[in-house]
């Protein structure tokens, strides 16, 4: 496996791979986003209790899932960057962090917008909301830390270390609704049990989750390409690319 992975430690290869993948990922993400959102927002039946306002689930749940999924991706990249000193992994930590921060912010904002009509308040200090807010702070911390050093490489390494330390928060967020009896409801979809959500509402939600995942990969490709160009600007292959 390492033989197969090895060429991808070379920035040039990753740059071209991302360039090849990016249009496909972006196209698929846009298509699925359109499909999932139009289906979810316009063609699913309204909830018997919540009426139409439950439809925000189609944005809230995918972005909340991806706020944690993006963090784990970032932490894995950070771990690789620290242990094997792979430069591309370092740059991808910094490339992923803003994407994850935006997903987290979307999850928090849509959750607040849903909480106002349903719970009667914009914000409650419940375990899941608080830990999701901490997650946003962790993302912002990684971004701020990476920019605080005069040496860009040190900044990337230290930010990777913080990303690995912050992994501790992921299980806390994930299990917060089970460990503490809080206002936020438990998961509606699980891998093992029959989902507690009607199939007519489930399908657009699953499509949107997939769409958010692919969109994350597409955005990562764009940002990673830029990061590679910035960091490798003095290498001959970048100069040749710019000369074309």
């Amino acid at each position: 496996m390492f033989k197969w992975l090895h060429p991808y430690a070379k920035p040039e290869t990753v740059y071209h791979l991302c360039g090849r993948l990016m249009p496909w990922l972006m196209g698929a993400a846009l298509l699925l986003l359109l499909l999932g959102n139009i289906w979810g927002l316009a063609f699913t039946p309204p909830d018997y209790q919540q009426g139409d306002s439950y439809r925000i689930i189609h944005l809230h749940v995918p972005s909340a899932i991806m706020s944690m999924g993006t963090y784990s991706a970032m932490a894995i990249a950070a771990f690789i960057a620290l242990v094997w000193q792979v430069k591309v992994a370092q740059w991808s930590v910094l490339a992923i962090a803003p994407i994850g921060a935006v997903y987290t912010a979307i999850a928090l904002i849509t959750g607040m917008a849903w909480g106002k009509p349903m719970w009667g308040t914009w914000w409650v200090w419940d375990a899941r909301l608080t830990s999701e807010l901490i997650l946003l702070f962790l993302y912002l911390g990684v971004i701020a830390l990476s920019g605080a050093f005069s040496d860009r490489q040190t900044g990337a390494k230290v930010a990777s270390l913080l990303a690995v330390v912050g992994v501790i928060n992921l299980p806390i967020i994930h299990f917060s609704v089970e460990w503490w009896n809080t206002l936020h409801q438990g998961a509606s979809i699980t891998k093992f049990a029959k989902p507690s959500i009607d199939p007519s509402m489930l399908w657009p939600l699953l499509i949107n989750i997939l769409a958010f995942k692919i969109l994350m990969l597409a955005l990562l490709c764009v940002r990673l390409r830029t990061a590679i160009l910035v960091n490798e600007q003095h290498r001959p292959w970048v100069k040749a690319l710019a000369g074309d």
């Binding site: 702070f137 701020a144 270390l161 330390v165």
Partner: peptide, 29 residues
């Protein structure tokens, strides 16, 4: 931990607060 992360950072003080206050939150709770 926070001090070790930011020891060579240019603007350590406020950054340190941003880094470790979120980690303090579970303890505070």
């Amino acid at each position: 931990l926070g001090a070790a992360l930011t020891v060579s950072a240019d603007k350590g003080g406020i950054l340190l607060a941003l880094l470790i206050l979120p980690l303090y939150i579970p303890l505070l709770i």
